[in-house]
Amino acid sequence: MSGKIEVQARKELKQMKPYTPGKPIWEVQKELGLERVVKLASNENPLGPSPKAVTAMQAALTDLHRYPDAQSVQLKQAIATHYELSAEQVIITNGGDELITLLSETFLDAEDEIIVPGPTFSEYEFGAQLMGAKVIVAPLTNDLQYDPEAIVAAVTERTKMVYLCSPNNPTGTILSKKELQYILDSLPKWVLVVLDAAYSHFVSADDYSDGIEFVRAGYPLVVLKTFSKIYGLAGIRVGFGAAPQAIIQNILQVKEPFNVNALAQAAAIAAIGDEEHVSRSRSLVAEERQRLYASFRELGLSYTESMSNFVLVEVGEQSEFIYEQLMAKGIIVRLAKAWGLNSHLRISIGTPEENELLIEALHHILKENT
């Protein structure tokens, strides 16, 4: 049978833009014929996965003919114990992205509104558009900080959810605990707040909250966390949400069974207890973040001080050219045009050696083009 296909997709798909991830190392190697490529584009852990997680996955390999635990009971309990929650306040998902989709499917109807900071992680908008909901952007300030008053002022009777990303991707800026408290206390009771705290482990500021204390206090809040960043498990996709039990029960109604594979569950259980790997990863980011700042100042580049494992740096009108030149030298960074930041690059913090290669390459490119 042949001929024109007349099956029509949902109208919402016409306005949706698929997420564009950073280029993988193998693709750049193939395209440019390079042997060595340094990836500083996807905010991954340059130290690799938690060693304890690797050992746990190896031990679980012989049971791969069995379906994984559909409710991830052991992992759920490990997370609950770690954060002093009840297991009923935790949901395990296939990375943080799945939780965003599940939240959209659970709580959003067509014509509902969500509020997001701008610029921020694009998947919040994607999830809302999937359900036919409207996205309202509450812009960050000129220096890319949160404006809590603007977020509260954007609320209407149609507002169903407010997304807060702290540290925010791609800016690395945070909400203080006081600002988070203000937003939570100021919003109508029917509004669900989602705090994406994927990068919370890297925060060094004293006045920060990852939101878990507000979950314990019973606020209508979902805290999103992931094992992809500090634990180094991005390749196996496991994340979780923490929220009051009633909210978790609603989300569970739309969750598919067996959504998190057995290796991911085993790895995450081991990783959450690997304090040495967490400490080493946090220290590396803190030290190398300062080193990048110093190098950017030396190169005359402005940057936004970050509480995460990446730095947003302003390189000027030639941002795309510099991005391509770095790529040609085997260094993958993230062009920030997708966030409307046309003169910026987002650079993940790598190992000292990787960061040195980046600095040398930037110095060479800028020197040649000034």
Rank of each mutant, 00 (worst) to 15 (best):
H363M: 10
S343G: 04
A243C: 05
G48K: 09
F227P: 05
F107V: 02
P21Q: 03
V191A: 04
E179A: 13
A361H: 08
L312Q: 05
L184P: 00
S42I: 08
E320S: 12
W339S: 04
T171E: 09
A266M: 05
L34Q: 09
N342F: 15
S319H: 07
N94K: 14
T20W: 06
Q290W: 06
T351M: 08
L187T: 04
I322W: 06
E111P: 00
I151H: 11
M307L: 15
M131F: 04
A246G: 08
A262T: 05
V137E: 14
A197M: 05
A133F: 00
T101Y: 11
K17N: 07
V311A: 01
A268T: 01
H277S: 09
G33Q: 12
Y146K: 02
R282F: 13
G132M: 02
R10Q: 15
A338T: 11
A328Q: 10
K14P: 00
Q8A: 14
Q74M: 08
S319A: 15
L108G: 08
V37F: 09
S228T: 05
T106S: 11
I236N: 04
V116H: 03
S209L: 06
A294P: 01
I79R: 02
G300F: 10
E113N: 00
S306M: 05
A110C: 08
T226D: 06
G33P: 04
P244C: 04
G273H: 13
S204W: 11
P68Q: 02
M327H: 14
R291G: 01
V238K: 02
A87W: 12
I248G: 10
N169L: 08
T370E: 09
M16H: 06
S204M: 12
I332G: 02
I100P: 09
A110M: 06
K178F: 14
K39C: 12
N261T: 06
N142R: 12
M16T: 10
E353N: 03
S319V: 05
L40H: 01
L175Q: 10
P21K: 10
E125W: 11
Q265K: 03
A328C: 03
D196W: 00
K178Y: 13
N355M: 08
A338W: 07
T120M: 02
E125P: 00
S343A: 13
D147V: 03
D185F: 01
S281G: 09
E35N: 11
F310E: 07
V135T: 10
N259E: 11
M57T: 06
G273F: 09
L32N: 06
L357G: 14
A53N: 00
K14Q: 14
I25E: 11
T62V: 11
V90P: 01
E105Y: 13
S281T: 14
V285W: 14
F227D: 01
A128C: 03
I247E: 11
L61W: 12
G96F: 02
H65D: 15
A150T: 14
V315A: 02
R10W: 09
V90N: 07
I365S: 05
